[in-house]
Computed example of a mutant assay.
Amino acid sequence: MAELEDLAFELRSKLLELCGTYEGAVHIGGDLSAADILTVLFSYGLRVDPTDIAAPDRDRFVLSKGHAAVCMYIAMAIRGFFEYDDIVATYGQLDSAYGMHPCKVQLPGVECSTGSLGHGLPLAVGMALGARHRGETHRVVTLLGDGETGEGSVWEAVMAARSNRLGNLVAFVDRNKQLMTSFAEERVMFEPYPDKWRAFGWNVVEVDGHDMGALVAAVDALPDPGSEVPTVVICDTVKGKGVDFMEHNLAWHAGSLGAADLERALAALGASRTKESV
Rank of each mutant, 00 (worst) to 15 (best):
A214M: 05
H67R: 14
T114M: 03
Y193L: 13
V158G: 03
D244F: 07
S113Y: 12
P108Q: 08
A75C: 11
Y73V: 01
V26P: 03
G226N: 15
A55P: 03
R198L: 05
D6A: 13
S163R: 10
A171N: 01
G201P: 00
A97K: 12
F81D: 04
K14R: 14
E10F: 14
A69Q: 02
M72L: 15
S13P: 04
L179H: 02
A69K: 04
S113K: 12
F82S: 10
F9Q: 08
G150E: 12
Y73K: 10
V125S: 02
E247N: 00
K65A: 03
T51H: 07
N168W: 11
V229T: 12
R165W: 03
Y98G: 03
T181N: 13
L121Q: 01
L46K: 12
E83I: 01
A131T: 12
H133D: 09
V62T: 00
E276F: 02
H67Q: 14
I234Y: 08
E276R: 08
A161K: 05
V26L: 14
V204H: 11
E3A: 15
V140K: 09
V233H: 11
R58N: 08
A8G: 06
W202Y: 08
G80R: 10
A69R: 05
F81V: 06
N249A: 13
L123N: 08
M180F: 12
D211M: 03
E5K: 11
E10A: 15
P122A: 03
M212P: 00
T21F: 01
A124M: 11
F61M: 09
R139A: 01
E263R: 14
M212R: 12
G115F: 00
D174C: 05
D208I: 07
D211I: 04
V154R: 07
G270N: 13
G258N: 11
M72C: 09
R198S: 02
A128E: 05
L94R: 13
T39F: 12
M1C: 12
W202D: 00
E136L: 10
L166H: 11
A131G: 13
A35Q: 07
E276K: 00
P56D: 07
F9G: 01
G240Q: 10
Y22C: 04
A124H: 09
L63D: 05
M189Y: 10
P223L: 11
F42L: 10
E263Q: 13
R134E: 13
I37H: 07
A157E: 05
R12L: 09
D208V: 06
E10N: 13
G270K: 07
M189T: 11
T231P: 01
L143N: 09
R139K: 11
F190D: 07
T21Q: 10
K239Q: 04
K241W: 02
W155C: 01
G115T: 05
V278F: 05
L107M: 06
L107I: 04
V26A: 14
L266V: 01
L16F: 03
T231L: 05
A254E: 13
V62L: 00
V26Q: 15
I78W: 14
H119R: 07
G30V: 15
L169W: 08
R139E: 00
A68H: 10
D36W: 10
F183A: 02
S13H: 09
A267V: 07
E148V: 04
R175E: 09
